[in-house]
Structures are given as C-alpha cells and as structure tokens.
Design a protein around this nucleic acid. Sequence first.
DNA 1: CATGCCCCCTGCACGC
DNA 2: TGCGTGCAGGGGGCAT
Length: 293
Amino acid sequence: MPELPEVETVRRALEPALMGARINRVELRRKNLRFPFPEKFQSRLKGRRIALLSRRAKYLLITMENAEVLIIHLGMSGRLTLSCTPDARSKQNNTTTDPGDPKHDHVVFHLSNQMKLTYNDPRRFGFMDLVPTQQLENHKMFRALGPEPLGNSFSSNHLVQRAQGRKTDLKAFLLDQRTVAGLGNIYVCEALHRAGLSPRRSAGTLATKRKTPSKWSAALVPSIRDVLNDAIAAGGSSLKDFQKPDGALGYFQHNFDVYGREGKPCHRQSCTGTVRRITQAGRSTFYCPRCQR
DNA sequence: CATGCCCCCTGCACGC
DNA sequence: TGCGTGCAGGGGGCAT
C-alpha cells in the first residue's frame, strides 16, 4: 500500500518516539520477509541508539549512532505499529490500537524508552536491510533511483530529457522509480489527472520538437508535487490496511479524483466526463478520457 | 537499453 | 456455508 506519502507519514509519526531511543533487543519471528534478513541483523542493532529517521522514495531509513542504516520497505502490506510495553502501560494511560493479525508480526524492536515497534506484513513483500551509511547509495535498491519528487532536482527538464524518444506510456514511465522515486499506482493516476494528461499517451510526447518541455510536461511536475503534498498533509491514504503507527487513519483516500472511482463523474471543475478503468502493465489505471489528453 | 510478462504472498470481495 | 476467481498500494528478474 505505501507510496511516498504513506512512508513519509510513518516517518513523521515515528520520529518523536524513536529519536534518541536505544534498541534494547530485536525480536525476529521468521528468517526472511521478501529477502532474508541480513547477517547478524539482531546483534548489529542491539544496544544502538537511533540518531536519525529519514526517507528516500518509499524507503524508511533509520540511522544508528554507529552510522549503520536500517532500511525498511513496507512492500504492499507492511505496517509499523508503535506501542508501549505492558510495564509502561500500567504506569501511564496509553492506549495502543489494533496491531493487526499478530501472526503476521514478523519483527519487534524493543526500545529503551518502554516502547516497542512492531513490523506486521501479511504478504511479506516488504524487506529490511542494514548497511553502513556510506554504502547506502550503492545499495542495489538505491543505485538506480530517480530524483525525489519533492526535491530540487526534480524538474520538467529532467522529465523531458528522460522521456525523449520513449514510446512507453506515461503511466509506466512515471511508475518507473528511475524516472522519479516514490510514486505508485495511486499517485500516478492522481497526478496525471491533475495535469490533464492521459496515462495512455506515450512519454516521448512530453517533449516538443525542440526538446524543450511542452506545456503539458510543465504541468506535470507541479501536479505530482501537489498531489504528494496534499496526501502527506492528510496523513496518507488508508485503503485496506494503512494506518499510522499510532493506529490513526490517513484520509487522503477521500480526496481521490480518479483512483477507485470507475464509473463516477470526473471531479474536474466543469468536466462532464466519467472515470474509466483500464489495465496497463497488468495494473489498474483510472482516468477521465474526457479531460485527460 | 527498453519493454513486457511472471512471480513472490496473503486476504478479501464477489459470484455461484 | 463453501469454493473458485480475480484483485490489491511494489518491484526484482528474466526473456525478447
């Protein structure tokens, strides 16, 4: 489920509880998720103090004081839940919400501040890794990542340059993490709708003959940024199972213009179109054929 | 290099 | 109630 806004929401929710805390113990309830846990995963984390929580694309990064980074990817169904240990709960009046089916609690980080962080992931498409900070950029999953959509190096020039001569459709182009890092199925659909661009259009048409950004590609970057910022402000989108680590739900799903709205009227002001669902690269695309060209 | 397809895994909604 | 089918927010790996 988690695309960039959901991961960012998780990061922000965890930050106050995790910053400066020490990892007392890592409880592993299986030996792998999508991939095996790295060598000596538990012992390398034991006793470490958490120095920084950050995010790259859809990856949550937890940097330890000893300059090792815990990389967490939530896959499709991964969830991080923060809760108090029974001891702490009796002292304070903390409530902890719906931890999900405990049989899918695969990792529990026991922290020095009486909190625990539980990773639950029914489908196990997520994974964790632990590498020296220095090696992060060379990590297999990070090497080819494109720019952060909310960062300075993401521009229409970048998009146009990458789109040059590409016949692949805009949907696949934007879903490709090498183009821009962090968009997934929902936010690509939403961004294209905001930009008035058809997901079926070929990426190469973003450029004009003079290789300068067309007016369409100029609209695309702000559309992407806006939809991501709006979603982050709403605490992400809660579809089937996304919750913030404190159990609260995001509410951006109520603001979708096209995603999941097949057959419903287009939300664009004065557009009379109807949202359509098609399949591209084996995944659902929602768009308005009337206002998205 | 670019593209298209299959796969990993579980849960859930749906139709019969 | 039970069963089969298709679908789900990701992304690696492989053949072409």
